[in-house]
Computed example of a mutant assay.
Amino acid sequence: MRLRESRLWGVAARGMAMGAADVVPGVSGGTIAFITGIYQELLDSISRVGPHALTVLRRHGLVVAWQYINGSFLLSLFAGILISVVSLARLIGYLLDTYPIAVWGFFFGLVLASVIPVLRRVPRWNTGALFYVLLGVLIAIGVSELRPAQVPATPLTLFLSGALAICAMILPGISGSFILLMIGIYPHVLTAVHEMQIVKLLCFAAGAVTGLMLFSRLLSWLMHHYVARTLAFLGGILLGSLKIIWPWKLPTGQAPEAGDKLAPLMSNTSPWTYAEVTGESSYLLIAATAAMVAAMIVLTVDFWGHRQGARQ
Rank of each mutant, 00 (worst) to 15 (best):
V63Y: 02
I245Q: 03
A295D: 08
V23N: 06
R14H: 12
Y99M: 09
L171V: 08
F159I: 02
I101V: 14
G309E: 15
V118C: 10
D260Q: 13
I116K: 14
A263Q: 13
L156N: 07
A275V: 04
A275S: 13
L82C: 12
I245W: 01
L134W: 06
G142P: 04
S28W: 04
A288G: 04
V23E: 11
T191C: 13
W248S: 02
H224V: 00
A168W: 02
R120C: 09
L285H: 14
A310I: 12
F106L: 08
L77E: 00
L42Y: 09
L238C: 09
N70M: 09
L134R: 06
G93T: 04
R59W: 04
L164A: 13
V85N: 08
Q308C: 13
I183V: 09
V64Q: 05
A208S: 12
A79W: 04
T154N: 11
F215R: 05
L160A: 15
T252H: 02
G19L: 05
L164S: 14
A291N: 04
L110M: 14
Q40T: 03
D22V: 01
S144T: 12
A232F: 01
L3F: 12
G211Y: 01
L138M: 13
A79M: 09
D97Y: 11
W272N: 01
I35L: 05
V151C: 06
T230L: 06
V64E: 08
